[in-house]
Amino acid sequence: MRYDGKLYRALNPVHAREPLSGRGAELYGGRFNPKGVPALYTSLSVMTALREANQVGTLQPTTLVCYEAEIARVFDTRDAAALAEAGMDAAGLADAGWRERMRADGEAPTQALARRLIAAGHHGLLVRSFAAGATGADFNLVLWRWGPAAPHRLALIDDENRLSRAHPPESG
């Protein structure tokens, strides 16, 4: 499938100056990217982005950003037949033990799925959110390829250059 529209991401303010970086996911791995593979975890709604960024405890300081996206090759996990053909099912996507599997086996099944989809030429994955409080209507778009031009254009919306003017407080 193709995705055209707005995407949202809630960032730790420490990383807000690099809203197009997938470096954290690359360093540590995520549910849908193995270590060493950059990924940008975005959401289709503001509330989903906030839930994703604040999954533990009380709401923490967060910087919310919005992107304009035109992503040509998105794997849609709502298609059960395509998901089965890719070697996965809905229960596997939702497996809360993916981190333990990554530690024990070196790669979680959802990360292996991502590796196969990337090799097949997909730029991203549309998948429901598994964050606390999310419903079946809350979706994320995990991007493995993004940039300033087609076929996987992602542009930060920051018309007033607010992020470039933001400076961390001085200590003293």
Rank of each mutant, 00 (worst) to 15 (best):
R101Y: 03
A86K: 13
G92R: 04
A134K: 07
I71D: 00
V65I: 04
D76S: 02
A80M: 06
D79C: 04
A69K: 09
F139K: 07
R116E: 11
R103F: 05
F130D: 10
A91T: 11
A114V: 09
F75K: 06
L113F: 14
L126D: 03
V127W: 07
G124P: 04
A114I: 10
A119E: 11
I71Y: 00
G121S: 07
E100W: 11
G124Y: 07
C66H: 05
F75C: 13
G87M: 13
T62H: 00
D79G: 02
L83H: 05
A137K: 12
D79R: 10
M88G: 01
R99A: 00
A80P: 01
R78Q: 09
V65P: 03
A84Q: 05
A94G: 15
G106E: 03
A90C: 01
A80Y: 15
D95M: 12
A120L: 13
E85T: 14
E100S: 11
A114P: 11
A84N: 01
L64P: 03
T62R: 00
T135D: 00
A91V: 04
A81H: 10
G124S: 12
I118M: 07
H122N: 08
A84P: 00
R99F: 01
A81G: 08
V74Q: 03
W98I: 15
W98V: 08
A137H: 09
T110D: 03
A86M: 06
A119N: 11
R99Y: 04
T63H: 08
E107P: 06
R78K: 02
V127S: 04
G136M: 05
G92A: 09
P109M: 05
A120G: 04
G87V: 05
L64Q: 02
L125E: 02
A72T: 12
F139V: 04
F139S: 02
P61E: 01
G87T: 10
T110Q: 01
A119G: 09
H122S: 11
E107F: 00
A104G: 06
A91L: 14
G97Y: 13
Q60C: 07
A137Y: 09
T62G: 01
E68W: 12
V74H: 01
A108T: 06
L93S: 04
L93M: 10
G92L: 03
C66P: 02
D95C: 07
D79L: 11
H123Y: 15
H122E: 13
S129W: 03
A96L: 09
A131F: 10
A94T: 10
L113W: 14
Q60N: 13
L83V: 06
G97I: 03
G92F: 03
A81I: 15
D138H: 10
T63R: 07
T63Y: 02
T135I: 05
A119R: 14
A90P: 03
L83W: 01
A80H: 14
